[in-house]
Nucleic acid binder design. Sequence first.
DNA 1: TTGTAAGCGTTATCAC
DNA 2: GTGATAACGCTTACAA
Lengths: 320, 320
Amino acid sequence: MKDVAKEAGVALGTVSKVFNGLPVGDSYRQRVEAAAEKLGYRVNNYARGLRASKTFTVALIMPNIGHPFFGTLADYIYQELDRRGYKMLVFLAGYDPEAERKSIQMVRQNKVDGVIALSYPPDLEVDDSIPFVSIDRYFSAGIPCIASDNYGGGQLAAQKLAELGCKRLLFFRIGSVMPGEPDKRGAGFEAGCQMLGVQYDVLRLNDEDGMDPFFRYLEEHMADGKLEYDGIFCCTDHVAYRVMLKLRSMGVRVPEDVQIIGFDGIHVFDGDGFFVSTIVQPVKPLAEAAVSVLLSEDRSKLPALMCLPVSYAKGGTTKD
Amino acid sequence: MKDVAKEAGVALGTVSKVFNGLPVGDSYRQRVEAAAEKLGYRVNNYARGLRASKTFTVALIMPNIGHPFFGTLADYIYQELDRRGYKMLVFLAGYDPEAERKSIQMVRQNKVDGVIALSYPPDLEVDDSIPFVSIDRYFSAGIPCIASDNYGGGQLAAQKLAELGCKRLLFFRIGSVMPGEPDKRGAGFEAGCQMLGVQYDVLRLNDEDGMDPFFRYLEEHMADGKLEYDGIFCCTDHVAYRVMLKLRSMGVRVPEDVQIIGFDGIHVFDGDGFFVSTIVQPVKPLAEAAVSVLLSEDRSKLPALMCLPVSYAKGGTTKD
DNA sequence: TTGTAAGCGTTATCAC
DNA sequence: GTGATAACGCTTACAA
């Protein structure tokens, strides 16, 4: 920068102003720009971050980025941050609380301007000096949580299955013991069934158990090649997909005999079709909301919990 | 840091040394650590980066991160960087050369310690002052390129299809006009066919055309409900998947009448099964190699091009 | 070993 | 508007 100033024959401060869009005489500006171009000068963001303690960087903490739901969400979040001139520093913590904590530490050191986290560890300690937004997990009133309307989605699934003629429903839930907004899918489903007067059963499992107990359950509830249930709601598309595969391998026709609805709205490839019939999470709005809340000017009155509307989409596992 | 020094009753330099793992008297170290803990002190990476011009940050430039192949690759790259104590700054440029250039600019300003780029713009100008590794596209001898053995994969596909009894092969290629290692898939396939003396045709399309010309071609080459070809190699799993869907909708049985092999090795979900029979890219080794080459101590003799072995995996679109 | 002091590249505050 | 100067928080010779 000093060199640029010398080359342009102006003072240091002037160069700084040019690069910050502050008012500067036009002739000066041009000379500075020419000199910078000639010398291939770029402002050093580290020096800038040090001095201005504003880094235009946001940290994204997620379990991973290979799963299509997370990947897509991360992609949209990036777009939104980029649009506003922010960079994205990624931390992938798996489902390991230890890694989570490490990420938080890193975030602290790196003086990012904000954190968007999709994580479940209950004891996540957040430095409230730095803007923080959570996706899918409610921590406390001080930390805005952005989530899909999981409860409403559960209800919608029950309603859809009932509409499609199902009389005997089943809910499959698998997931970590960690609490989060997604848990409400089951609650919404149960409420929906009760409201509609439809009979239903619930099977809850933990991550460690894998899918086998589900499969065993399905086998146990077969009689004369016919499943006891004619509609199944699964907590995720992944589970729904595997249940579909299992049923078909057992000779059960999907969706003719049993209809299945999943949750997430994952695409096979980009935009062409769903794995299963599903309750679609509004991934893009989710991303936009998270960024917008994180970067909002007035952080005094932020929403504690923001639920975005979901929708139903037909994949291959329901009649309509 | 000054506060920590005061609290611990030591000099500034001592505190610095403690946080850099440099030799320091044990009693001092403990006092410093206690003081830091008490004051909740974290070293400021921006100040550190400014002074030491080492940021322990690597930039990853990719088209996107929502596509399962890119997402998975990014995930593995993250793991590898994390293992070595590096952070990952992500830049998603779609397939827009303009965005690419912007990313490169950003990278420059941000004084990252290295760049891993999966991008195709032919005029990408790289600042050779900063370690740069390319994935899937060869730029020049100065820039190491890590890629799958695309040529060998093409050959393998031809060989597999021939082994499985195919007599009349077809190669479908869709993609941007931008050159890159993946182009070699077709070349390898053709070479394989020639070597084996199998008859084959090739259909090449550009991205903008979409899949329709393929579908039309397939329809035109049907006679009496039978396709003229009994084996198809597609440049990606995505294309293969869509071709499979199309053929099935046309009443052609896959894999009984026509066998299809794709390229990439994308999973339906995490680890359970492939979309189609496929030539699997070694995603994890690719990530490891990229990071390892990027961060290698001796940058004087780096490989110009490094091709990693691919393998064949049966999905649902071949007989074996 | 420890303490001191000089910068790293910017930005912000002033007088001019 | 412009230009000198002091910070920002840290690393690293170098002297003690």
